[in-house]
């Protein structure tokens, strides 16, 4: 589904990603871990098409398409989803209007008819239940005045609405209390299917108690320096990142 080869990217002249290689297949869950500043969030931003970052080398293939060649909106329409580390507050744009516009634009891209108002509301209700979020959140402006936990739950709700093929969750677990973490994890687990895939970017093992990854990768200084099964996460939790840093030097 996703093939990243030798990806280099920089921001303001500084190279952050220095040759990433990663393969994600349908049905898999990958976790990308690593110390602060290793380039985890940069990778997520580059894949989503954030223009603040410049790709200097490498390729990314997403379902046979050159992902880097697509606009951010077309990446989303192709089934790519980023759960933002810092979801943006947009006062004046209602959640309902936001989701309806997004969903219908995606449908239009795929040549499908837009959802009727009643079908849309039905889908909203259904997805809210699935990810277990308060209906109050969808009556408000996008993320406006939401707590940190509410914002993250809202990202998972959007993911449930848009039903992407590949979702990257960028530190969706950071700053969550245990209840919110459980809601987020349940959402991801319920949405998991053999034909979609998830990449979890995280700092801690904690989320991985709830969502069990097939692969764990360690990102350090802009490169994936270690890949293994879920046991790697436990090792990192126990021993920190220092041993990896030492290994590298």
């Amino acid at each position: 589904m996703l093939k990243i080869r030798n990806l280099h990217a920089k921001i303001e002249g500084k190279e952050i990603l220095r040759g990433i290689d990663l393969d994600v297949k349908a049905g898999e869950i990958h976790a990308i871990m690593g110390p602060n500043g290793s380039g985890k969030s940069t990778l997520a931003s580059v894949l989503a098409g954030n223009e603040a970052f410049e790709v200097v080398e490498g390729s990314v293939e997403f379902n046979g398409k050159d992902l880097l060649d697509l606009s951010p909106e077309d990446r989303a329409r192709e089934g790519f989803f980023l759960s933002f580390q810092y979801p943006v507050e947009i006062p004046g744009v209602s959640m309902t209007n936001f989701m309806r516009t997004a969903l219908n634009e995606q449908k239009k891209y795929r040549g499908e008819a837009p959802l009727s108002a009643s079908d849309f509301l039905k889908l909203m209700r259904d997805r809210k239940q699935l990810v277990d979020i308060d209906s109050d959140l969808t009556n408000r402006s996008v993320n406006e005045g939401f707590s940190g936990g509410e914002k993250k739950k809202n990202e998972i709700f959007q993911m449930a609405m848009l039903d992407p093929k590949l979702a990257i969750l960028d530190e969706t677990d950071s700053g969550l209390d245990i209840d919110a973490l459980r809601i987020v994890a349940n959402g991801v687990n319920k949405l998991r299917r053999p034909d979609n895939a998830t990449i979890l970017i995280t700092h801690y093992q904690r989320l991985l108690d709830h969502i069990v990854p097939d692969f764990v990768h360690v990102l350090y200084k802009g490169k994936i320096v270690k890949s293994a099964g879920k046991e790697l996460a436990y090792e990192l939790e126990k021993n920190g990142y220092d041993w990896i840093k030492k290994e590298m030097e």
Binding site: A76, F84, S141, Q158
Partner: peptide
């Protein structure tokens, strides 16, 4: 960027944000 990352075109995102400003 947030709006576009959800599949909303630049033009439509512009309209949403202008409206948000005016509301």
């Amino acid at each position: 960027f947030y709006l576009r990352a959800r599949g909303i075109s630049k033009e439509e995102a512009n309209i949403l944000l202008m409206y948000a400003f005016a509301y």
